[in-house]
């Protein structure tokens, strides 16, 4: 300011001063507006709770016998001959409608495999000669930790899809040369006694800012 040549006329100098004064006042007013937040406080966003980590879990729904063996879990449930007689196939009783009567000891079993009571006989899959194994109807013995061939003996196309990776859950590496690829077994998702996948609670849907597009009401009052 000091280095500026003297103003040529009083009118111009006064004009400069008015301008500078005006700008200063303007900036001060602007600063004051910001300080008192005259433009209004920013509207607080509605709180969106984080999704429950249970919806992020990639663990299978069920554990198979093979999983239990691997995890060294309690296998006493699979000790059939703790109760059953070794040389005598267990009897199967039916009610008046020719429906199987599930004995009290096995009351946790729901008979729901197939419609029309097609599997109204335990020994369609269980081996009556050796309860510690399973059997295909053609007589082949199948161990509890490798059941897909047994399931595939009836569900052929599904078994073929599963073998090709098109049915069932997979995880790991799509590129088999870079890493392992895991495929779940049938019983990891399906309960063999009632294989239909039960209904589940869905994860929360998208948070709606304006559930009613007519009124533009916020979904929740901002805190």
């Amino acid at each position: 300011m000091e280095n500026r040549p003297p103003a040529p006329s009083g009118r111009n100098g006064a004009l400069t001063n008015y301008w500078l004064g005006g700008l200063t006042a303007g900036f001060l007013a602007l600063a004051a507006l910001f300080v008192v937040k005259a433009g209004g406080h920013p509207v607080a966003r509605a709180v969106i709770p984080l999704v429950d980590p249970k919806f992020l879990a990639t663990t299978p729904w069920r554990q198979t016998y093979a999983d239990l063996v691997k995890a060294k879990e309690d296998l006493s449930d699979y000790d059939c001959y703790g109760c059953h007689d070794k040389n005598k196939p267990p009897p199967i009783r039916y009610d008046a409608n020719h429906k199987i009567i599930v004995p009290q000891e096995h009351s946790d079993i729901v008979m729901g495999h197939g419609s029309h009571d097609r599997n109204n006989l335990c020994f369609n899959c269980h081996n009556e000669q050796n309860l510690l194994t399973l059997q295909v109807r053609d007589g082949r013995e199948v161990s509890f930790d490798n059941i897909p061939p047994l399931c595939g003996s009836c569900h052929g196309p599904t078994y073929r899809d599963w073998e090709n990776g098109a049915h069932g859950r997979t995880s790991g590496y799509w590129n088999r040369s870079l890493g392992d690829f895991q495929r779940l077994s049938c019983a990891n998702c399906h309960n063999p006694h009632a294989p239909r996948i039960p209904t589940r609670e869905p994860a929360p849907g998208p948070h709606q800012l304006h559930p009613n597009p007519e009124t533009h009401e916020p979904a929740e009052a901002a805190p």
């Binding site: 992020l56 879990a57 990639t58 729904w61 049915h167 069932g168 859950r169 997979t170 995880s171 790991g172 590496y173 799509w174 590129n175 040369s177 870079l178 890493g179 779940l184 998702c189 996948i197 589940r200």
Partner: peptide, 13 residues
């Protein structure tokens, strides 16, 4: 070389 996250979490494959 891995599968996408949405694939691995899908409970029904």
């Amino acid at each position: 070389g891995r599968y996408p996250a949405c694939l691995e979490v899908c409970p029904v494959g």
